[in-house]
Design a protein around this nucleic acid. Structure first.
Length: 817
RNA sequence: GCCGGGGUGGUGAAAUCGGUAAACACAGGGGACUUAAAAUCCCCCGGGCUUCGGCCCUUGCGGGUUCAAGUCCCGCCCCCGGCACCA
């Protein structure tokens, strides 16, 4: 039920009225001409939602409101703010839901989108609905396919057979970024490794640049850190260990190892190959083939969680083969063990059990020699090691390098290895190439045609889009083959190059490719003949501020940076970082716990909006905690902002025309100063608190507000409660929208200064009183007044004063002995 | 294990170039107005003691620096997030 109060403020009516007027007047939308000629453009972006059947949840509304407040603030300051919204509607989530309820995604998505659109309007976002995108629309994914082709032509998209992450319940491969601790990020099932031919984007070629540029962008530090952790740069060396036969002669094979501690090579007492390593077969002794192959077989079939568990004891088998340690000349055995991963480095390590915890554990288990080659200060080089030593010290048992400090030894030994021709410095990244093919239905078909004569051929751009056909049986299966492979009339085609019979690629692309470029599309959403109009792109991009969740720190935010870099390198755009500023918002929890359907503590926004209005809901969400840290949603909490907005209304509609009271005016200017400083930094909760305090001062003792006092508050609340502000602005006698023109109140520091200040008086650091003095009072006057305070005087009697500390405008502290 | 962020009243939280801890709200208590309710306005609201003047304690724990520490330094504990058999 809507609140009907005697002050006449009925949120639902006010909100309906202004939402209608915004639509009618085009307050929030741009025409093509406006986009192309905007003076002071500000691109305010937020992460577009996946349109679920459940509708907007509180987390969406929280994020969008926080971003909308930001956009509206800049608009009130006179910027031309473009704030688009769209739908990320391809992907497994939609497809699975459609399967579950027995409908088709092509029917499901439009109704979800229209429900989302309704809700997004209802919460009062300043969205430009003329420039919305839906990633599932052919007019959008035509260009997603175009982007694929650009990478393909540039040699950055490659189809190769490789071990990939296979999620059995989802029946598709996953990108590395979608595997969390060995499980699928969507369904939590253990991920398996499968060898399949897949399309990869060579994001690893951009690893160094993706890392370096982190220095140049203004992002939340948590997000920057997450990205650099994900990129995982490490420096070390690749060393070559020749394989030898029984007689100690080189066989010609060489085991390449990657190590971050080449300086410990004198302590390398064995070699470990990962079970997938190509040399396993050739180094294995004939007599040991059975156990080695059995081990490899078991290890490669393990799922990722089982394989990557660190708390289990290590397993492995000797191959019977040997390498020569190039530093010592010794022959050292080659083992196969699954604690070495094929995906990282070279898939082989030199084991230095003395100085690596994992190697130490393995060596103990299999009774392999442990040799100390680093000794800490004062340590005897020959004492046995109780555990791997990784601390500071100097090399020992390392021939000519004995005594070299570990701070220099990596470089020194690497230089030697390099001179001798058995190693070189090497930088490694944890980042893998981006696997973008999905053996599912609900995505953009990858625009490739396979021809027996010509190989993989890109679909000519003039033939785009490759339309996703409506297929009633779109269930995935466990074969690793896409549902589209069952649609012969769709995949049978001719080769664009030789005209011979050919077959379309039947995999679709990862959803994250859809979202990797949507911010480029928004300004050009109404353009048919290009993915992004170059004039509009120049004017609006890169994005000024992007606000979103940190759950995308290494998925969407990394992929979109990569795609942007590629488009720059290919000459399509002239910037390489898509978002100048990124801010991660916090999460809303409920009564101290994460919201989840299973806990039954999910907040359903619609009834709250119906009861209190979008303005009160928005204001409450922004008030309940620091936006960048999130907050705890409590059912009664909305009462505070709700009452505040009603009192603001009441004071505004009954305001008198008298000149502002000087004391109140001072408070108003202090508030303007504070809010103007905090709002652009996303200090929403404290801005609202300051405005509440100000209104309390205006209304103190039941006082009638004066226009000049209340009007600045009406403008400053507008980002949070836009409908209320519009209505009050109109009732205060203004024409048009409060958001047109530059209506933000001007801060006047002179009007904010206090004539008197309260000074705390301490004796030995303990507060003994406080005094009120003129703001410009001299030290002598203040200290005199402090001494005169009755309680202070008592504490100063009978003691010796040693020092007086005076902090202007703050305190006086008498230090006594 | 490594790297971030955090720990403050009954509750959500303010205050960090060191300077009156708890602003602003929620919940709770009392009062004014009202036939009543709502709305509005006023007062109380970290703990203990009090001769009602004040006094003592209090920002996860233990030390330290300082006239002065929620804030800085050292050593711990706990929570949240990122990375993780990554060589």
């Amino acid at each position: 039920m809507a609140h009907e109060e005697k002050d006449g403020y009925v949120p639902s009516e006010v909100e309906e009225k202004w939402q209608r007027l915004w639509d009618e007047r085009g307050t929030n939308t741009f025409t093509a001409e406006e986009l192309e000629s905007a003076d002071d453009p500000y691109y305010n972006l937020m992460m577009f939602p996946y349109p679920s059947a459940e509708g907007l949840h509180v987390g969406n509304i929280y994020a969008f409101t926080g971003a909308d407040v930001h956009g509206r603030y800049h608009r009130l300051r006179g910027r031309t703010v473009f704030e688009p919204m769209g739908f990320d509607a391809f992907g497994i989530h939609s497809e699975n839901f459609a399967l579950k309820i027995g409908t088709h995604p092509m029917d499901l998505i439009p109704s979800n989108v229209s429900n989302f659109t309704r809700q997004l309007r209802r919460i009062g976002g300043m969205f430009d609905w003329n420039h919305s995108v839906d990633t599932t629309h052919p007019s959008y994914y035509k260009w997603t396919q175009w982007i694929f082709l650009q990478l393909f032509k540039a040699g950055l998209a490659e189809r190769k057979e490789a071990p990939v992450n296979w999620c059995p319940p989802c029946m598709t491969v996953l990108a590395n970024e979608q595997v969390v601790a060995g499980t699928c990020e969507r369904c939590d099932a253990p991920v398996e490794q499968r060898r399949l031919a897949q399309w990869f984007f060579k994001i690893t070629q951009y690893a160094q640049r993706l890392l370096d540029n982190l220095e140049t962008i203004d992002w939340s530090s948590t997000t920057l850190k997450a990205q650099s952790n994900w990129l995982g740069r490490s420096t070390g060396a690749e060393l070559h260990f020749p394989v030898v036969d029984r007689e100690g002669e080189d066989t010609g094979d060489v085991v390449e190892v990657y190590t971050t501690r080449p300086d410990t090579v004198f302590g390398a007492t064995y070699i470990v190959l990962s079970p997938e390593h190509p040399l396993v077969e050739s180094v294995t002794d004939d007599g040991l083939r059975a156990p080695v192959y059995a081990y490899v077989d078991v290890a490669t079939k393990k799922d990722l969680i089982a394989r990557q568990k660190t708390d289990k004891s290590k397993t492995g088998v000797p191959t019977g083969g040997y390498c020569r340690n190039p530093a010592t000349g010794e022959l050292i055995p080659i083992w196969v063990a699954d604690y070495v991963l094929m995906e990282y480095g070279t898939g082989a390590i030199m084991a230095v059990p003395g100085h690596d915890a994992r190697d130490f554990e393995f060596a103990q288990q299999f009774d392999l020699p442990i040799r100390r080659v680093v000794a800490g200060p004062g340590e005897n080089p020959d004492t046995p090691l109780p555990e791997a030593y990784v601390g500071p010290g100097a090399l020992v048992n390392s021939g000519r390098f004995d005594g070299t400090d570990v701070s220099k030894s990596v470089d020194t030994v690497t230089a030697w290895a390099s001179e001798e021709g058995w190693g070189e410095a090497k930088v490694n990244f944890r980042l893998h190439d981006w696997c973008i093919s999905r053996q599912r239905y609900w995505g953009p078909p990858i625009p490739i045609i396979h021809c027996d004569n010509c190989g993989s051929v890109g679909v000519p751009e003039s033939d785009l889009p490759v339309v996703l056909p409506r297929v009633e049986d779109f269930r995935p299966d466990d074969s690793g083959i896409s549902p589209l492979a069952r649609v012969e009339e769709w995949y049978k085609t001719t080769c664009p190059e030789c005209g011979g019979a050919a077959r379309r690629e039947t995999d679709v692309s990862d959803t994250f490719l859809d979202s990797s470029w949507y911010f480029l599309r928004y300004p050009s959403a109404d353009v048919d003949d290009a993915p992004f109009d170059s004039e509009r792109t120049r004017r609006w991009l890169p994005v000024d501020t992007y606000i979103g969740g940190n759950e995308h720190a290494v998925l969407h935010l990394l992929y979109s940076r990569f795609i942007t870099m590629v488009l720059k390198d290919l000459g399509h755009i002239d910037f390489e970082e898509p978002y100048d500023v990124f801010r991660a918002h916090g999460l809303i929890i409920r009564d101290g716990a994460k919201m989840s359907k299973s806990k039954g503590n999910v907040i359903v926004p619609d009834p709250i909006i119906e009861e209190f209005g979008a303005d009160a809901f928005r204001t409450y969400l922004m008030f309940l905690g620091p936006f960048e840290e999130g907050g705890d949603y409590r059912a009664g909490g909305i009462q505070g902002p709700h009452g505040f907005l009603h009192r603001l209304w009441d004071s505004a509609v009954s305001a008198s025309d008298e000149a502002a009271d000087p004391d109140v005016e001072r408070k108003v200017h202090q508030t303007i100063g504070q809010v103007t400083e905090q709002l652009p930094e996303l200090g929403y909760n404290t801005s609202i608190a300051a405005m509440m305090e100000c209104l309390n001062a205006i209304r103190s003792g039941g006082r009638t507000a004066r226009r000049a006092e209340i009007e600045p508050l009406v403008v400053m609340i507008a980002p949070f409660a836009p409908h209320l502000a519009e209505e009050l602005w109109e009732r205060l006698g203004h024409e048009g929208s409060i958001f047109d023109g530059t209506n933000w109140p001007e801060f006047d520091a002179d009007k904010a200064v206090e004539s008197t200040v309260e000074i705390a008086v301490q004796v030995n650091g303990k507060r003994r009183g406080s005094i009120e003095v003129a703001a410009d009072a001299s030290e002598d006057v203040v200290v005199g007044a402090a001494r005169a305070d009755e309680n202070v005087a008592r504490h100063l009697a009978d003691v010796e004063e040693r020092r007086v500390i005076f902090v202007p405008g703050r305190l006086v502290n008498f230090v006594v002995g």
